[in-house]
Amino acid sequence: MNPAIQGLITIVLGVGGCIAYFYLSNQFLDKVLFPARGANAGRNINRANMIRPWLFLFPALFALGLYLAYPVVETLRLSLTDRDQGGAFVGLANYQQMFSETKFWEAMRNNMLWLIVVPALSTAFGLLAAQLTDRIRWGNLAKSLIFMPMAISFVGAAVIFKLIYDARPIDQEQIGILNAIYLGLGGTEPQQWLTIPFWNNFFLMIVLIWIQTGFAMVILSAALRGIPEETIEAAIVDGANPFQIFFKIKVPQIMGTIVVVWTTITLVVLKIFDIVFAMTNGQWETQVLANYMYDKLFRASDWGVGSASAIVIMLLVTPILVWNVYNARKEMR
């Protein structure tokens, strides 16, 4: 069957099925199970209203449970078993094996570097862009253009930056702008930027910073506009210069938003896979956790160690998860 037709049928079945489910289950509840008539009409209405929320929630809860909650538990279980031994329980052996691999520690080190550099620089550039574009006439156009990389896939961005980092032999014209600039500034030899251990991590990070800055800018710009004008006017009257106003008046007032932006980008960084996969595939000491996990799962077919590294990613995410839930609950009160 043609996949396009299959897709169309799926849309119709999926959407139609959902709507039919909601409609029919509500009808069933009201007309058959607890009809709002007869001797127990009042009691029936109450009972129906107690059950109805769960009718609305069921498909979503089922999908969430199956596709997100169950895998967490199952991955934890898999990380304690060995596939080669038919899934036998092996305790922490997978973790021991993983901790003894240098590639794992390289991935950990790189992930920590990413965790520090990318959120910090994305937020900083985002704040800069938000402040700069805030009060100029073509600010919205500038924002659009800085925000644009957000729509570009990590893979597309990888191609874009591979062209920038491209190196040709010294006797040929350079087609990568970075080498062209490097030679123009007096460099002697074209550099293969992505194969220089340690520093190549930063060349990969630039790709993500390029993508995430727009996100940070949009959110921080909204926060900057929310700052009460009086506080700024008061500062000007007191003789503060523009830099003092920015760092001492504005930034402290949007600290909460900065933290939100920072943690959101941190989440993206923890899961970063496509950029490394497409640009270096973890060679030249650029391994990161998600790519390490992919290697273990689908190249080495080692589900135990792969699951163990997935659990490591989950553990790194957990503090943010707890913090988010805590804040959400605080808001609801």
Binding site: L64, P71, L321
Partner: peptide, 19 residues
């Protein structure tokens, strides 16, 4: 349930691949 949704928001999908 709302808290659970907020929590699931950040669960890395890497965990879901194998299961």
């Amino acid at each position: 349930l709302i808290a659970a949704v907020v929590g699931l928001l950040v669960v890395p999908l890497q965990l879901a691949l194998i299961p």
